[in-house]
Design a protein around this nucleic acid. Structure first.
Lengths: 115, 115
DNA sequence: TTATTAGGCAACTAAATGGTTGCATATCGC
DNA sequence: GCGATATGCAACCATTTAGTTGCCTAATAA
């Protein structure tokens, strides 16, 4: 079963790129780590310990929500945010495949590269 | 050996975010796949098969070069671009660690999450 | 019930980003 | 040498992005 060329097999660039873009901001990456370490959390709690405004944090959360990286649920007067398992796994998988495919290509093209 | 909080252990967000940002553009992600599949390639060759200008491609390559995702070398009148193994591996590793750390956190916090 | 606390919405700003066009320079093949 | 090819540089443009401030609504707690 030979996989030809750029067909990564599941997530095309136009679908994966936005997820990486969402991860490609320092503030958002910190938020991810935060949610990752300490579990679901409210905006205000996420804002505390950041030098940014609550509104800024809100915007970042919305960006990540739009690409499916986080999800939120109301609980009383606050809203709890948590990471979305699937999307992060997808992104990871994507890089995995690229790496693997690249290794294969390296084997095939060893005559051109020296590293 | 208990790893505390956000200390991922190697690449802090301020260093990793730009790499994800570089991957977070559809065109650039396609370029990565292209270079990955077919090995080192010149700008003109990368431009062919894209609806964009050569200059646009050049700019994208420079973005990726700035974060160390690609490297180039002159060969005669053309410049060959290739992927930089290390950076891509780093990014992948980063997501790996986040996922793993998250799984741990999930275990500890299973009382709060239901998914 | 009233002050406080958590959050949402909208307008605005500065800077970054993705793309273009035009022109200049270097190298290759004949 | 000369035309064609491959790239580099700079200016310019429109849109997006990251962040702010101000004000409004909803739930809590005293």
């Amino acid at each position: 079963m030979l996989r030809r060329h750029s067909s990564v097999g599941f997530a095309p660039p136009e679908e994966s790129a936005p997820v990486f873009a969402a991860l490609g901001d320092e503030t958002r990456l910190r938020l991810v780590l935060r949610l990752c370490d300490d579990g679901p959390m409210s905006i205000t709690r996420l804002t505390a310990g950041s030098h940014l405004t609550r509104q800024a944090i809100t915007k970042h959360l919305r960006v990540m929500q739009d690409v499916g990286l986080v999800r939120s649920s109301r609980r009383g007067r606050e809203r709890l945010w948590q990471l979305e398992r699937k999307r992060l796994r997808d992104a990871r998988h994507y890089l995995d495949l690229i790496s693997r495919q690249w290794d294969d290509a390296l084997g095939r093209l060893r005559k051109f590269v020296e590293n």
